Amino acid sequence: MVSIGYFLACEEFAPQELVRQAKLAERAGFERLWISDHFHPWQDSQGQAAFVWSVIGALSEAVSLPVGTAVTCPTFRIHPAIIAQASATAAVQLGGRFTLGVGTGEALNEHILGQAWPPAPVRLQMLEEAVTLIRRLHTGKRTTFHGDYYSVDDARIYTLPDEPVPMAVSAFGPVATKTAARIGDAFATASPNAELVQLYRDSGGGQRVVQGGMKVCYAETEEAGLDLAHRLWATELLPGQVPSTLTRPKDFAAAAELVSREAVGRQMVCGPDVERHRAAVQSYVDAGFDELYVQQIGPNQDEFFRVWSEQVLPSFR
């Protein structure tokens, strides 16, 4: 049976509200947490972009749930050696209940230091090298490393959890999925794609954990939920390489104008129909996912947690 967690959206909510939502999620019966890692929101209407490692520190004192990043890019904006230290500290704070989710990132967040944004195959190579370096540093041994993209000189991480920090690798296409199967401890993706799950397992992922994420907008009416979801998260439906190559929130907002309300409604459950919310979860169960993380869009958080606690989560225990 799938383990259902809550997805904390750093792009949409301030740090204090994220911590409040985490507490609500734990009380409601959600079993784990994902948290996004962004320098910019996808578009200005979302309005936030907290530094995730500070929020994780607060979460470690506020809840007892496992926490994972969804996802951190350890290749441009922050050197992988610093991500290795940050993730080790997070794992210590959380008593080993931390998973470092990693991916190739988006120019939206990673271009800010003025580096050139390479094509996807190069970004995958950089991610693989970064994962190798992070794993070496997580051994606690003094490390000197000179790769094609990163170097460290006589570096050692002293604050370490009892066990190495597991790494989940995010992927959305077949090439990246095969890479995830080769280098990761778990696989993260954003749609209930059974073929992608099977490709991961057949490519070496075996029975490792497969994680998925989805957005819903519980609201009094379907129209109200759809209005909010379309205004804040139409960017979720941008195709191909578009989400990884645009550099400014206003560019995402402009591109999102091409996404129809109907398309958003087909991908995200909006409104109060509990059966539709259950069916969305079931689609991930049917596709073979082990963990599912659900994000409630907008301010109606308390009612969402009440309804899911009483009417959705019990169906999947």
Rank of each mutant, 00 (worst) to 15 (best):
R156L: 12
V210L: 08
L8K: 06
V55P: 00
P161Q: 06
E31F: 08
I83F: 12
V242N: 14
A70N: 07
H230P: 00
S170L: 10
G298R: 01
A168D: 07
L113D: 14
K178C: 08
A287D: 11
A280W: 04
L24Q: 14
Q311G: 02
R231D: 13
I157A: 03
M1I: 07
C10P: 09
V2L: 15
L199C: 04
W34K: 01
P15I: 05
A25E: 02
A176S: 12
V264Q: 04
A168H: 05
E223Q: 15
M214P: 03
P74N: 05
C10K: 11
V259G: 03
Q198A: 14
D37V: 09
A14F: 11
F252E: 09
A116I: 11
D290R: 03
T144G: 02
T69W: 06
F76C: 04
L232I: 00
F51I: 05
D148I: 02
G240K: 06
A86H: 09
R306V: 01
S309W: 04
D286F: 08
A263M: 04
G96F: 07
S54Q: 15
E310L: 06
H146M: 10
L18V: 00
R123T: 05
A84L: 06
T179R: 11
G288K: 01
E220C: 02
Q46Y: 02
L137N: 02
F7Y: 15
A224F: 08
L228S: 08
T159M: 15
S170Y: 04
P15K: 02
P119M: 11
R142E: 15
A254S: 14
L59R: 01
W42R: 01
V63A: 01
E262I: 02
I297P: 02
P41Y: 12
G204Q: 09
E31S: 14
L237R: 01
G5W: 06
E257P: 00
E17C: 01
E291I: 05
T143M: 08
R77W: 11
P314D: 10
P299R: 11
G204F: 07
A107R: 03
A50V: 04
T159G: 14
F145K: 01
C10D: 15
C10I: 15
F305G: 00
R208Q: 11
A219E: 06
